[in-house]
Every structure is written in C-alpha cells, then in structure tokens.
C-alpha cells in the first residue's frame, strides 16, 4: 500500500451507512498493549524498537485478514500527515522518532501502530454508532496476536501501559459527534457538563489537543481500569450516546419549528460561501461544511449528498491537498487550492 494512492479517495468506510450516522459520524475502539520483557517508549533504544517491530510486524501480517505494512519512519513527512488525516495513525505517531510502523486494513477500518506511546495500539473504525462491532473486531485480532506474543500483564493492574491513564483494559472508546443543533440552541454546555459527570473526555475532531471546530466533538472514556471492555462499550451505546442523539434531534426539530428562516439563512449562506470562495482556511471550511451537513440532514438542502461532504472533510486537509496537487503548497496556496476543490465538489451543475 502506497500512501500516495490513498489521497484521491476518502476512507472507504466513511460513506457506508451506519446507525444514527446523521449525528454519530463514526465509532472507534482502541486497545493498547505492550510486550513483556521490553521497556516502555521513554527507555527504549532504537535497537530494542527494531526488535519490537520484528516481533509485532509478522504477527500482524499473518492474521486471518490482510493488512498492509507501512514503515512510518521511512515515508515522507507529508505521507505521515496524510495517514493521520485519515485517522490511520495518531498525531503522536507522526511526530514520533525512531523505528515505527503501522499495519492497515485495505478498507482502512483497522490499523495497528507499532512503537507509538505503547508498543502496540490497535484500533477499529465504523461509520455511525457501531462500537460493539469495533470492539469485536479489535478484540478478535488481539486474541490472534496473543497466541504469538506475550503482553505485559499484572494480576492487579491488568494490561500495563506506558501511561497509567491507559492501564487495565487499555481500551479507548470514542465516537465522533456532529452537534450543530445543541450548539445553535445554546445547549452545548449541557453536553459538556454531562460528559464531565460521566468521566468522559470531549475533544475536537482531530483528537488530543485539537480545538473543537464546526460543531464536531470527539467523546471518549477516560477510565480504563476496573471496568470491563464490554461495559465501557455498552455504557456508550446504550446509555450515553442515545441520550445525546435524542437531545440533538430534539434541538434540530426546535430549530426547524421555531426559527426556520434563521436556520435556512445560515445554511444557505454557508453553501453560498463554499460555492464561491476563492480563498478558504480549513477552519472556515469546516465550520461552513458543518452547517451544510446540518442542512442536508434536516431536509433544507436536497441537491448535495452527504457523502460529498464527508469526502471533503478528508480532501480539504493540508496533506491531502498537497498530495492531490502533487507538490508542496504554502498556506496561502493551500487556501486557494482548497477553495477550488470545494467549489468543484459542491458546484450546482
């Protein structure tokens, strides 16, 4: 698999239908594991990092499903960025040093990073609210790998991780939510408060450290010790997320009923700017695309398919733009090229 080949297409799974996909964009489950007998990242020499790669890569490539291996240390910086924009590797893996890699499923709905913060981080993705399916997949792969290697495990603390915040199950469950209704009706603070009460973290669309832009929020668990994997998942799928979906739906309904002109104005202006801008930053584009996405889902915009918007989320990002242009672009050139890509995608004809 060549990273450059990915840039012209969106992630294959993102446009498949998923439950509640108009609000829950995607689901992700990640497991963190470390090899027994090996130091954690801060104390690993390059030699030991190579040994870990030599143990884990063949284990991953001999699974019952085909994975493609990419040597993250060797590829170009822009290719690393591209993989991160597609959620196949983390920003930390982009910035990382030394021998490290990633094994990726062809559909891009599974990836396993080697030598990130932990020796092995496996993650499965699905569109809409499908955390159970993600857990099953990643768990089944974990079972297969465990037949070949020994993971660091402690009878009291469970799976040992480099950072104590991932200790125990090593599970991180997250959903990407689109909540423009709650934002526009001034109820988004309730969502933050509820997340806090449930010990959940809210982040921007691009993970750790990213700001929330365009009403996209990533919600994830923080407690990984003392709660079984299935319980973390069922908390999300049965209790937390359905409530949020219900409130967001109600908020959208309120908007349509109580201030249809205000909503229409906002949505149509957003579409107008996207269709006509000659320079646009990724931040502005995300904010406007968020409004257009809302317009499509509440039946105020008919001629645009939601898949077009989903695709743009990938294509308007810096590495995707540069790969598509076939050369490196400075920020001004990117704003210009981004506007061009968006105009083409959303043109009425």
């Amino acid at each position: 698999m060549n990273p450059a080949d990915l840039s012209s297409q969106p992630s294959p799974w993102i446009n498949q239908p998923g439950p509640d996909f108009e609000i829950v964009i995607s689901s992700r489950v990640r497991l963190a594991r470390n090899l027994e007998g090996y130091e954690f990242k801060p104390c690993l020499s390059a030699q030991r990092q190579n040994e870990i790669l030599e143990i884990l890569t063949p284990a991953l490539l001999s699974l019952d499903q085909k994975l493609y291996y990419i040597d993250v240390d060797k590829i170009a910086a822009v290719e690393r960025e591209l993989l991160a924009e597609r959620y196949l590797i983390s920003p930390a893996h982009v910035r990382g040093k030394g021998p490290r890699g990633v094994a990726i499923a062809e559909e891009e709905n599974f990836s396993a990073m080697i030598n990130e913060e932990d020796h092995l981080r496996m993650q499965a993705y699905a569109p809409g609210l499908q955390l159970k399916a993600c857990l099953d997949r990643v768990n089944q792969i974990d079972d297969q790998i465990e037949k070949k290697v020994r993971f660091a495990f402690h009878p009291r603390f469970g799976y040992l991780t480099a950072c104590p915040t991932n200790l125990g199950t090593g599970i991180r469950v997250s959903v990407m939510l689109h909540l423009p209704g709650l934002k526009m009706t001034g109820q988004i603070d309730k969502f933050f408060a509820a997340a806090r009460d449930c010990n959940l973290a809210v982040r921007g669309a691009f993970g750790e450290g990213s700001e929330t832009v365009g009403d996209f929020y990533q919600l994830s668990n923080q407690v990984t010790l003392g709660v079984a994997e299935a319980e973390v998942v069922s908390n999300f799928t049965e209790k937390i997320v359905p409530k949020i979906v219900e409130y967001e739906r109600a908020a959208r309904q309120t908007l349509i009923e109580q201030s249809p002109y205000v909503v229409d104005d906002k949505i149509q202006r957003a579409l107008g700017v996207l269709r006509n801008a000659r320079l646009i930053s990724s931040q502005e584009a995300l904010v406007l695309l968020s409004q257009v996405r809302l317009g499509v889902h509440i039946g105020r915009i008919f001629e645009i398919q939601v898949s077009k918007i989903n695709n743009l989320f990938f294509h308007l990002q810096p590495a995707h733009l540069q790969m598509r242009a076939g050369k490196s672009l400075d920020p001004d050139q990117r704003d210009s090229f981004r506007a061009q890509v968006i105009r083409k995608a959303l043109s009425p004809n």
């Binding site: 200790l167 407690v223 010790l225 003392g226 079984a228 994997e229």
Partner: peptide, 18 residues
C-alpha cells in the same frame, strides 16, 4: 491511578490466555 480511574485500583475485564 485511583484518581484517574474513578477510584478503581483493580483490573476487571480481558486477561491474556497465558
């Protein structure tokens, strides 16, 4: 550990087959 994991200090959930 206790404070980051809501008071929990003991693993519950998956264990390696070993």
């Amino acid at each position: 550990i206790q404070r980051t994991h809501n008071g929990n200090t003991e693993h519950c959930g998956k264990t390696p087959s070993s």
